[in-house]
Design a binder for these strands. Sequence first.
DNA 1: ACTGTGACACTGG
DNA 2: ACCAGTGCCACAG
Length: 111
Amino acid sequence: MKPKAVPKPPMAAAIAGKIRQIPRGQVSTYGAIAKAAGYPRCARHVSKVLNQVPGLPWQRVLGAGGRISLPGEYGFEQRFLLEAEGVRFKGRHVDLAKCEYHFPGARRKTA
DNA sequence: ACTGTGACACTGG
DNA sequence: ACCAGTGCCACAG
């Protein structure tokens, strides 16, 4: 059958789902999540989803290069929470080489 | 239907 | 290494 499905599966659900599967102690980037969700060009929407969908490990979402894009006090909060999970920080960036989480089958077709 | 929005990514200086 | 500007794309009102 044709899974026309997704009556309303905007990318919000796809992105939120990807973020939810990020294991503790690991992190990911907006671009990677957007790409894994099926929208390689919509890194910016990932940020919106984080604000719209509560219950997500927003702290595990970083900007390109492992940089914290979150401004204000929340930026420190994110870094604090990540370190609590075991994420190593290199100054203002995270060591993506060790903590970047790779999504399983990050392809937009077949699985 | 259109405009505004956004915790980005990337390039150049 | 850091700062600033530009481009992108889908969703909400």
